[in-house]
Structure formats: structure tokens, C-alpha cells
Design a protein around this nucleic acid. Structure first.
Lengths: 340, 340
DNA sequence: ATGAAAGCGCTAACAT
DNA sequence: ATGTTAGCGCTTTCAT
């Protein structure tokens, strides 16, 4: 059995003190080139790796950040939004040599297990809350612990909190305006959850587009899809009697649900009813017909959130950072527009 | 600012030594009930939480397990397999009060960053490799570090390694036999990657079913889909000229790709060509027509892998554990069978 | 049942 | 430029 290698032992083998070895490992400048070489040689030979936990304890830094996925994200099953986000965070973690701890909970009870972990200093140096729940109790907790964090989505206490979000209002506005330009007049909406900023803001963009084009907002053309495929399927069926000629779905997963409902009902898309979604998930392009949608840079989200968090951990947050990303209209088959 | 609470301080407040507080926190029996009460009282009042990193260093246990997603899983974008798996692991981690560190890499270069983390003792107490790559270099590394691990899927060095897998051969066999029972004779296969055990084994099950029913295996009816939707779309198109009357796709994502190709080519499913997939992803049920498939208990996978790993960490692995889960044929619309 | 003390492997301040 | 030393907060013998 190979004994555990320690700094001390490496120092012994290289004929220097443990401190010098530490300096070499951490690229501290104050080491003579010759000595550095020698130490690196020994490290190479022995295959020494620093003990990360010991390092963490001494340096008050774990090199771990947490990513917290909200409890309500049951849609994780069918909606690639979160996987995508996770991937964005993972990439940036890799690039910065930090490791990602992923937290996903199903019950409030489980969620409480987070609290010991949210100590500062402790297991994680900071966390990303992928919640976007309008009122997230975690936010208060985190602030109290002086734990660096950034939220994805726009939380209720926005001014005091660092977040990265997409411009949901403008995105939805663009989607609906596009539909109007195609000559649609009875434009329905399938809403996302109204306790999440994305749901609220997209609804607002919809209303804004209607009013700016002098269309009246008709309650009977609004249904809730809960950000889920199945929810949107039902919502679409409820909408049908009120004869919309277009639907704006507040997420692609929901647009796909609407599409399925329309297929079931044998209604032509975009012939009788046009659809625009939101997200531009990979599945959007391969739907039939391919989905016109608002592209949201999900990967960038994850990356930016991570970079922002690391920056806050490193340099502190004198003032909260608010990052809002633009969206992009992707015209495909379901809106009835001719692609130029 | 609130000073960081330590065992020492709690002991001071409760009038006992730090050791006693430690015993209370860790439910050690040797503490008088009265003292225990008093200490717990102080802990409650002060909101003390143990410093996990310090605990790890002293106890040689981090309470963190790693989940390693293979580099090749680009399909993470479109295929809910891995999200599902992650969820299974997360649930079991929560239930056992351990935290999950998620590792996803894109380049070999990134993958090397794992190695320092794979020290034992170190940041993680053990890892789950969700690879199922036939030859995974990680496996050797891990064994060398005496790092407990279990792999999901059947690795090349199976006998020495603990793994949990699904019975892919029998699953595929069942799928193809079902097709044969429906009267199909020219049954094509869209293969998954042949460097992963799932891909290899499902192909074998296919061949086995053919031979047992005295059908000859026709190379021109076999195409590679690489476990990806787009790959299967192309594969289906290549298969068409050879006039199959059925297709077994080695994953649902690929079955969906085949379905899309068939829709494009205006070929009736299951009228002209029947399809059976593999996985039973949530999307399978809402495809049109709904997908007949082989259900694979992905969530159970994650759970079992985690439980097994924790057991190995706790009790060591005198002999490797091999867990093989059964599959189930789910009959829906694409196979042409009447549902009883 | 409780306390004293050693040490886990590292970083960093201080001394040289 | 290098070594010495004092912790980081906890667990865990070993005394008592």
C-alpha cells in the first residue's frame, strides 16, 4: 500500500521544507528556478496530489460552488432547459478549476438539509440559485450567511441581489408582434407559472404587444400551462373553443404540447393556427412543423452566472450585478412567415 | 458580524469541553442525558453548524460523492436519459445526507482535472461513473487510488468492478421478438454506439431474436445511429431503400429520429413500418404515434448505484457487486399491436 | 461520562 | 529565497 504523500514527505525527498513545496505547487514566485525544478521532479515521480480538503481548511476556500435547482422543476424530466443550464455551469466550472455540487430537492424537508452546507466558510464557496421563483426563501438565508450567490432569473428583491436573466418582456413582445405582422389578430397565450419571473414577464410582453397594436387583451384567450408539456396540451384544448388564430406559448416545451393538441384536433399549423414558442430548445428545430421561437442563450446563462459568482467570491460584491441578456426571434415553420 | 461558531465556543457556553460537544453532535452514546440537553440547547440558541470541511479533514470522510458523466454524452441536450439518471442519484444522496458533485467534461484535457480530485482521501468519498463506455480509462485510475466506485453500465473489466446495468440483451430480444410476433419479417436495427455496452448488448439481443426465429440477419438492414436523434434520422433514410417492415431503435431518442424520418418520407407508422424503441423516456408516450418501447428503470439505476456506492464506502467491497435490472415491454402505437 | 491533547495536510505570516 | 511556526475546526485516542 502506498502511504499517503504529504507536502512534508515531498519536501523531505527534495531536500526542502514543506513551505517551499507548497509555494511550488501554488505557483508562488518566490522559489529559485533550480529548486522549483527539483521539487517538480519529485512531484512528478511520486505522483503527489495535494489534499484538497486540507487545503480548503487552511485557506478557507473549498473550490466548490453549488448549483441549486428549484424544487418545482419537475419538468426536468421532459424539458431540456435545466440540463442545458447545468451544462453551461459545468463548462465554466471546468474552465476555472472549480467543482460543481448539484442540489436538487423534492420536498421542503430535503431542502432544509441545505442549510448546514450553506455555512460560510464551509463546503461551498458560493451558490447559483437556478430558481427564478419570484419569492425564494433561500435568498434571505444566503444573505444572512454572507454566502456569495447569484440567481438565475429575476428575483423579487432584485435591487439587492446579483442575478442574470434574459429580457423576457422584450422576447415575448417580439414573438407576439411577429404574429401580428403575419396578420393574426386573435392571439392566445399559454402562460408559464405566474410565481416565476419568466412566467410573469413573458405574459407582460404579450400584453404590451397587444396594446401597442391596438388589439384588446381577451381573458378567454389566456390559459395556464404551468411551463409543462402536458399542461399546455390541456390549455390548448381549452383555448380552442374561443377560436384563436395564433398562440404564443411561454416555453418551447409548452409550444410542443400545444402542437400535440392541435395535431390531435386535426387543426393545421400554421394554416389555421400559428404558434411561437420561447427558449429555442434543440427539440424545437426538429418538431413538425419546426417551431418558430424566441431563442434564449441558456448555455450562456450558466456560464455568465458562474463567472459572475466566481468574480463575487474573488472580489466581493460592492454592488450587486444585474445581467440581462437579449433574445432573438428564430423564424421556422409554425408561425406562417416565409423565411427570407 | 457574527464570529464563526466553533465547537470550542459552544463548549464554553455550555460549560463542557469541545470533545463533549463533538460527541453530542455526532450522537455518541457516552454523554449524560442532562449534559446532552444543555449542549443541544446552546446549539439551538446559537444556530451552530459544524464546519464540514474541518470535519472531513479530521475524519477522512467528505460526505461528497462524485457523479461522472461521460464526455461523449453530447446527447445530454436532447436525450433526457442523463437528466433522469442525475435525478435518481440526487434523490438518494438527499436521503443519505451526502452531497453530489457533478462532473461533465467536453475535452480529454478537462478530464484530467479529475485526477487530483480522485485522491483518496480527498474531496469525494467515492464516485459513480455513468459511462458504460466499454473501455474506460478512468476505471484503472480509480482502482489505483483505492477510490470506491461503481459504474453504470457493464464495463470491460466487469468481473473485478462493481456495476449496475440493465439487461440490455434480453430487452432488445424482447423488442425484436415482439415485432416478429406482429408478423414483421424484414426487421431493421438502428444501432447505438458500439463502444458502449448498451449499444453492443442491444445489438446482440436483436441478432439473437432473429436467429431464434429463423430469420437471417441482413447487414443492409443494420445502420448506426450513434444514440442520437439526428444520427437515427439519417440512418432511417439510409435504411429505407432496403424496404424494412419494422425497425428496432436501440434508444427512444433514436426511435424518435426514425419516426421523424418516416414522417418526412410520408411512410405510415405502424402501417408500413413498425418501430420499437428502448428506454421509455417521458417523450416516448407523447410521440405521435406513441412509441412502443422497452422500459428501463433509469431512476432506479441512479438510486441503486448510489446506494451501492455508499455501501461500499461504508463497508468496503470484499467482492464486487453486479446488479442487473430487468426491462419491460411497453406496448403503444408504433408497433402495430392491439393493446389488450 | 468527560477532558486533555494529538493530529488530519495544508496555507500564510513571520523570521531569517 | 527559504524555513519555522502557528493555526484552520474537527475527530479521536488516551487518561481520568
Amino acid at each position: 500500500m502506498n502511504e499517503r504523500l504529504t507536502l512534508e514527505k515531498i519536501g523531505e525527498l527534495a531536500g526542502v521544507s514543506r513551505a517551499t513545496v507548497s509555494r511550488v505547487v501554488n505557483h508562488h514566485p518566490n522559489v529559485r528556478a533550480e529548486v522549483r525544478e527539483r521539487v517538480l521532479g519529485v512531484i512528478e515521480e511520486t505522483g503527489y496530489q495535494p489534499h484538497l480538503i486540507a487545503r480548503s481548511l487552511a485557506s478557507n476556500r473549498s473550490g466548490v460552488i453549488g448549483l441549486i435547482i428549484p424544487r418545482i422543476a419537475q419538468s426536468l424530466f421532459t424539458d431540456p432547459y435545466y440540463p442545458r443550464l447545468i451544462q453551461g455551469v459545468a463548462q465554466t466550472c471546468n474552465a476555472n478549476d472549480v467543482v460543481m455540487a448539484l442540489f436538487m430537492f423534492h420536498t421542503e424537508n430535503e431542502e432544509e438539509k441545505l442549510y448546514p452546507i450553506l455555512q460560510r466558510p464551509g463546503l461551498v464557496d458560493g451558490v447559483i440559485i437556478a430558481s427564478a421563483q419570484k419569492f425564494d426563501p433561500l435568498v434571505g438565508r444566503l444573505a444572512a450567511n454572507a454566502m456569495p450567490f447569484v440567481v438565475i432569473g429575476r428575483p423579487a428583491h432584485a435591487p439587492e441581489v446579483s442575478f442574470v436573466d434574459v429580457d423576457n418582456v422584450t422576447g415575448a413582445y417580439t414573438a407576439v408582434s411577429h404574429l401580428i405582422q403575419q396578420g393574426r389578430r386573435r392571439i392566445a397565450i399559454i402562460n408559464g407559472r405566474q410565481d416565476m419571473s419568466a412566467g410573469i414577464d413573458r405574459r407582460q410582453g404579450y400584453l404590451q404587444a397587444l396594446s401597442e397594436h391596438d388589439l384588446i387583451a381577451d381573458e378567454s384567450l389566456m390559459a395556464d400551462g404551468n411551463f409543462e408539456e402536458a399542461g399546455a396540451y390541456d390549455a390548448m384544448l381549452r383555448l380552442l373553443p374561443h377560436q384563436p388564430d395564433a398562440v404564443f406559448a411561454a416555453s418551447d416545451a409548452m409550444a410542443l404540447g400545444a402542437l400535440r393538441a392541435l395535431r390531435t384536433a386535426a387543426i393545421a399549423v400554421p394554416g389555421q393556427i400559428a404558434i411561437v414558442g420561447f427558449d429555442d430548445l434543440p427539440t424545437a428545430a426538429i418538431a413538425s412543423p419546426p417551431l418558430t421561437t424566441i431563442r434564449q442563450p441558456i448555455l450562456r446563462f450558466g456560464a455568465l452566472a458562474t463567472e459572475t459568482l466566481l468574480d463575487i467570491i474573488e472580489n466581493g460584491a460592492e454592488s450587486p450585478r444585474h445581467i440581462i441578456l437579449p433574445t432573438e426571434l428564430i423564424i421556422r415553420g409554425t408561425c406562417g412567415a416565409t423565411i427570407v
